[in-house]
Structure formats: C-alpha cells, structure tokens
Write a protein that binds this DNA or RNA. Structure first.
Lengths: 264, 264
DNA sequence: AAATGTGAAAGACTTCACAGCA
DNA sequence: TGCTGTGAAGTCTTTCACATTT
C-alpha cells in the first residue's frame, strides 16, 4: 500500500526499487539465523529458500546493493548481514514512540523484535490520565499532553499509532508537527500527511478480507458451482436508489447480480 | 507482502488483479463511512480521496467488478457496499481461530474490526495450560491439544497465528492438517504450506525497517552527507569462508511462497 | 456538463537464461 | 564445475486521455 509514496521526484541517488527494500528485512532475518548457527556462506538458492522467495529475485535484489557475492561460492553471511543492515539504516539507533497503549499498544511495547534491530521504544503515550505513570513493558506511560516535548527531548523521528481510528489523524498531526517524519499506523483509517512524511499501514481487517476473498474462491471451485448460489437470499437491500433519478430498474435484476466480470 | 502468487495461467474467467483485491477493503471502508452518513452517491474522485488512492485507479479497479456506476452521476453508495462485500466474500460468516494468546493474541481477540465484517472469533487457543479456561475478550481460551477438534467442530477455514516464531510452523502444520486453508501469520517467520493454502504475513519489525530505510535516506539528503559517516566504525568482521557446509538442506518447495488459488 | 469505463502507453516488478568469473 | 550478476523478455500495475453515457 505504501501510503507514503510521493517522495521527492529527485533523490535518485540510489535507486533501490521499493519492492526490493521491502524484501531486505526478510533476507536479513534469514541471514541472522544463519549467522547464529555460524554458517559462513550461503548460495542464493539456499538463502532464497530460507526467505521464501525465488533465487533469481534474490540475486537481482542484491545486485542493486552491489556485488557482494563470490561466483562459484555464494555470499559471506556476516558480510551480507552488515551490508543489508547498513542499507536499511539499522546500524544506527532509532528511538520510537508508541501512541495509544491499549491492548495493541501494549503488545507492541512488549514485542521483542522491536528492541532488537536498532529500534528503541523511547516512550509510551496514552490519552487516558489513569494510565499515566503505569509501567508497560517496563516503561512508564506518559500523557498525551506531553507528546510534543517527548518527541523533541528524545529526537524521535518514527512514531507508531495504535489509537482508536477516531483519534489517529489528530495524533498523527501532532506527531508530524513535533517533527516525526515516519509513521507506522495500526488504526484502521487513512492518514493524511504532508509531503516528506512516510506512512505505512498495518491493517488486520484488510488482511483478513483479502484472505476471505481467496477462501471464497476456493470454495466456489471445489463444488464447481458458478452461480455462487447461497447468497442470493441476502439481497442488496440497497438496490433501492435514492434520489439519483436512475431508477433501479436499470440493472440489478432481483437475481441479475452475477456481475459477469469483464464486460467485453 | 503480496501473498497469493499464482503460477497457473490465472483463470481469466474472473480475473480480478491481486492489486485490486487488496484495495477493495479500503474502498469498502470508505463507502461504509459514507453510508453511515447517509450519503447516497459518490464520484470516483471523492471516493478515491477518501480511500487514499487516485481516481483513475479506482475506476479501473471497479471496472473489474462490472459497471456499477452511472455516468455523469457517480456510484450508488449502498449498492457498491453490497457488491464489494459480496465480491470479497463478506456476505457470509467466517469463523476464525486465533492461536497464541499472548499480548498480541489478546489484542487481536479484542480488536473490534474483527467481529464486524463477517469475521467471528470462533475460538482462542494457547499452549499454556495456565491460560486454559481463562476468558479473553469474553471467550474462554482453550488448550492446543484440542486444536484439531476445535477446527473441525467450528468449520474453521481461516486461522490467525500469534505465537512465538519458534512455534509458528508447527501450529501452522496442525492447522493445515485440520483443514485450515487460509492463514494470517503474525509470527516473524516464513511459513511453509502446501499448495492451495494461502498465507498472509503481518510483520511489525519489517514495517519498521522499511520506514528506517526511508528515514535514513531523508536524513542523508538534508545534510547532503553521502558517506553515512559514523558507522564506519562497526565493521563487518566477516570474511572467513568454509567449504560448502550445507547441512540443513531442506530446500523444499521451489517457490515456497504462496500458492495459489485458482487452478484453471 | 459531468463523470464513468476503458483502450493504449508507460512504468514497475519478476523471471529467464546465460555470459563470465572463481 | 558451480554460482553470481545481469541484459532481455515477460508479466503485472498504474496512469493517461478520451469516447461514451446520462
């Protein structure tokens, strides 16, 4: 979804494709596991299998970073770990704030992978005064009133929003004003941000809906049914057109659903 | 991370592009909001703005579903809500099980958006005997031992994995064996599944790393620094090279990614 | 006059397949 | 021989721009 698109048109200094960037963390994880097992080198084939991609793609991805492999041998694990970490900016410390310490916020604060790779939870912020001072994951929750100060005092540039949808945009605005330029949004809402600010979204219900789409399709196949019967019962109910002149008679016949995709 | 690949020629009968499917939930959410405000119709321009995409893309997306708009007018909100819901398979009930009731699992169980759109948390499962019986989000947690029975008794086809990485593959195998064909994986690990099973992954640390990448770039631009100084200190420290110590092996499925859907 | 639906062009990403190096 | 690195081909996605319909 990559909300935050819109990078400056320029900045072509190092054009690593977005799709490649999105896979680097995957490779890094696989490499880290190999490193822990003291495996010295891997071939693109092996590493690709561990990361769940195909080897040609992996080699192409690495080619954007430079030539870090050895023909006939493979890649040096430690060296690659370092190169990818550096490329991703993980060799530096990233203080992060989490806003909205409900169930999800607490889960995120406790998430191990967070602290590991260069990210450090600098502060937890919540709008509920009752939460203030209470420690979550060993970090005392602070009140929203101090948001700006917290951001500035800690030099935070990455913010995580785990508030209810209704509060997300407002929190986002404050974060941005205070200097945050990258946001990870867990609230089920579209955030509007000024140019130069990156937003990534994680949305549970969207993922489930995508799964449901495929699941539905599988079910339909099995039985070779093509009329997708079974739903006809629960009709639109909408159908009825509001003003919009266009009387319903137009298309949707009572059963005339079956949208016949692909109108020639 | 786009999951469902698809080798097969891709059944053109109803070929809705994966990228379009991934956006339908977005449109649906925007439409639902409009519906609640009793807005009768929207133009592609307005709806696109609400969903955070551009209007040409939205129109193209809708064109795969059929011709549900009215030229010169726009789209009937209620009607579109129904059509998209049906296309996504949300007009039916999807029982879901969540495995791994730690911080994250509990957050998911409590997540409102879950219950809303056709998804119903049929059961919560955890390996810790101490959790058994304890209610989370009003649902009693059950022990992993009963996983297979629970799946079957409830006709579950969608499973959510929120266990630690180490347990994920095993849980996945059991879910699949018991009949689950769609999995939403929150564990930071690559899951291997047989053909016909869909896996989607949500990975916090990957999202953060992608943000860090862009964040780093921004910082670099501002100061025109390009040597990313300050890191040179922590060098690779790699180099050693053993022979081909490929012991693990296990390079299974060629494209261990996601399978797919729709055999022609 | 307004706004959809869609060919066609442009762009991004993936896969192929093989030259070239260790 | 084994495996990387990469042009070229193929596929998917986005964007353009306009004919078409209400």
């Amino acid at each position: 979804m990559a909300t935050g698109r819109t990078h400056r048109p320029a900045t072509r200094s190092r054009g690593i494709p977005e799709a490649t960037v999105a896979r680097l963390p995957l490779y890094l994880r696989a490499l880290t596991a190999l490193s822990e097992r003291s495996v010295p080198t891997v071939s693109s084939e092996e590493l690709a299998a561990a990361a769940g991609v195909n080897s040609a793609k992996l080699r192409k991805d690495f080619s954007y970073l430079g030539s870090y492999g050895t023909r006939g041998v493979g890649y040096d694990v430690e060296y690659l770990v370092y190169q990818i970490s550096r490329e991703l900016g993980l060799t530096q410390d990233w203080p992060v704030v989490i806003v909205g310490i409900g169930n999800l916020g607490a889960a995120l604060a406790n998430y191990g992978g967070f602290a590991s790779r260069g990210f450090r939870v600098a502060a937890l912020i919540d709008a509920d005064p009752a939460m203030a001072g209470k420690p979550v994951a060993g970090i005392p929750v602070q009140h929203t009133d101090d948001l700006e100060r917290i951001i500035k005092d800690n030099g935070v540039s990455i913010g995580v929003i785990a508030t209810p949808a209704g509060a997300a945009q407002q929190v986002c605005d404050r974060l941005v004003t205070a200097g945050v330029t990258s946001i990870l949004n867990f609230a089920p809402t579209v955030l509007t941000v000024p140019d130069g600010v990156d937003v990534r979204k994680v949305d549970l219900s969207i993922e489930l809906q995508i799964l449901a789409f495929h699941e539905q399709r599988k079910a339909g196949e099995e039985t070779t049914m093509e009329t997708a019967a079974g739903d006809i019962g629960s009709l639109p109910a909408a159908a009825a057109a509001h003003g919009t002149s266009a009387d319903d008679s137009a298309d949707q016949g009572p059963d005339g659903d079956v949208p016949a995709v692909m109108p020639a």
